[in-house]
Design a protein around this nucleic acid. Structure first.
Lengths: 186, 186
DNA sequence: GGATTACGCTACTTAAGGTATCGATACTAG
DNA sequence: CTAGTATCGATACCTTAAGTAGCGTAATCC
């Protein structure tokens, strides 16, 4: 998510493309070292910025990773002629995203970090989960608890395979996941 | 899993019921404080033992939590007249287990810890995952990749709901999960 | 009673998240 | 071109927590 470029920019030193550089370094570090070993010191060094610069922009490591994910995911493609097609497209889209280097591990790590960090849970909800959940509720015309169930099944399965076990999710498994969920969609 | 009580016990100070006490204190701490804040110092204090005693018995915090889970889960009830009944019983059993206080958070936490800790991943595989996977392959007469898919779906969904989001899994959701998986079982 | 083994205690090392301070730098406004 | 402003880099520091070392002590078997 690019920082808003206000036409009337306040004075002071520039922030130019630092966000993008830090995001790239973050995903790279998480991919190579895992969530725990991807320390803020390493990320800062890899991005060529000072650690203090990172903590000036994001309040915690978890918030940095979350912003990184929001930037990487972008808007969901909830398109399709039927509910089945919308669901199928959405599942394949998120499967591809979680399969990208670092995304799965970052996702799983930030979730675990958030379990007992209410501030981080707040950021995760408002910036990552709620937008997709609400968009899905509208696109599928399903109640909240049904959409939450489907999200838990899809995201949980993908994260357990790719973010935790570390194993890849082959195409056949994605196909099986899509078919299983579609059959549960009345 | 209780320590084997060999008839010919070596001399030295007793180990009596320390394992069980530590396990209870561990699950309690994880339940109340979460995986990260459930420090070994707190667990040791709650169990009434010294921290060094814990590290004499388990090589790391992750290994302690894993042993704790192995002890808590025990053998899986893979009984039933049909493959559907076996699968249904197994899903409801693991859903109930992961819903117990501390189990879900411990499970999710140790998985995330294991992502870049090969020693811990080894312990997890041999002591927790492989036994259940192999038993399921035999009970259901399904190939390894199919069983792995079902495990990822069921455990992933439950962990994402209860171990990460922290939300409870109501009976209706468990029913939906069972029905969905059974329909995918040929 | 003696050997053995685990225990409790204290102190320590190391890694990592996060903070404080301050001089330097790069931008905008006039 | 100067002045004001806000960020940056660097260094030093604090705190928590995992894990280790050493040593005296207590409980068990023979």
């Amino acid at each position: 998510m690019a920082r808003a470029t206000t036409s009337t920019r306040p004075p002071g030193r520039p922030r130019s493309g630092v966000d993008a550089t830090v995001f790239a370094a973050t995903l790279n570090a998480v991919h190579e070292l895992g969530y725990a070993h991807a320390t803020v010191d390493r990320i800062a060094a890899a991005a060529g910025v000072a650690k203090t610069t990172i903590y000036r922009r994001w309040p915690s490591k978890g918030a940095l990773i979350t912003a990184c994910l929001v930037d990487a995911f972008g808007p969901a493609p909830l398109t399709g002629a039927s509910r089945e097609e919308i669901m199928s497209t959405a599942i394949r889209w998120i499967a591809a995203k979680i399969g990208e280097p670092g995304i799965g591990a970052a996702f799983a790590g930030v979730f675990t970090d958030a379990v007992n960090d209410s501030a981080l849970r707040q950021i995760l909800s408002t910036q990552l989960q709620d937008p997709y959940r609400l968009a899905l509720e509208e696109a599928l015309d399903e109640p909240e608890n049904r959409v939450l169930f489907f999200i838990d099944v899809v995201v949980g399965t993908l994260l357990h395979r790719m973010g935790m076990t570390g194993e890849p999710m082959v195409d056949a498994d994605v196909d099986a996941l899509v078919e299983m969920v579609l059959r549960a969609l009345p």
